[in-house]
């Protein structure tokens, strides 16, 4: 793992210098840059993903930093900014070699294990990314209020 990270780090430094076609050309992303910086993410993205994976999956923490500048812990959100569209404007999945993750991972021959289960394109349904407002009928609070009222009737 350390070797892989080190290797990726080297690639990361090489990016700035070489864009002559022999090195992978990382698709341009939209949205605000990561607060940690691109260099940090290039080296540590695996660690960050693994960490958030266990936090969300095993502990139920979906929003790891709900401060003024929230970072959600869903891998799906990577593609909000890093989704790559084909000529027709459709988002390409991991099956396509233009996919954001594949550009570097094909180059470094590092297998990605995420997309046998996770979708690899932006999601249309994102309701679960934000906390329900109490007046939302599907919120637990609103539901419990309704049920409590029914039981007293």
């Amino acid at each position: 793992m350390r070797l892989v990270l080190a290797f990726l780090a080297v690639i990361g430094f090489a990016w700035g210098a070489a864009a002559d076609g022999s090195k992978p050309v990382v698709p341009v992303a939209t949205g605000d840059p990561h607060p940690e910086g691109n260099d940090y993410w290039r080296v540590h993205h695996m660690k960050m993903l693994l960490h958030d994976r266990d936090l969300t999956m095993r502990e139920g923490v979906r929003n790891v930093m709900p401060d003024a500048n929230p970072i959600q812990a869903s891998i799906g959100e990577c593609f909000d900014c890093h989704g790559v569209q084909d000529d027709a404007g459709a988002y390409v999945s991991y099956d396509d070699e233009r996919h954001f993750c594949r550009v570097c991972h094909d180059y470094t021959a590092v297998q990605v294990d995420c997309f046998m289960c996770h979708r690899s394109t932006p999601s249309e349904t994102t309701a679960h990314r934000t906390m329900a407002k109490p007046d939302d009928p599907s919120s637990i609070e609103a539901y419990l209020a309704r049920v409590a009222q029914e039981m007293t009737e």
């Binding site: 969300t56 139920g60 923490v61 979906r62 891998i75 046998m116 289960c117 996770h118 979708r119 309701a127 679960h128 990314r129 934000t130 906390m131 329900a132 939302d136 599907s138 919120s139 637990i140 609070e141 539901y143």
Partner: peptide, 22 residues
């Protein structure tokens, strides 16, 4: 997320519960 070769079952909609939904 769900994929070939793994086992799955009702998770009581844990992602919904975590975001405050039934």
């Amino acid at each position: 997320p769900r994929g070939k070769g793994t086992v799955e079952s009702c998770n009581l909609c844990a992602p919904r519960i975590d975001s405050g939904r039934i």
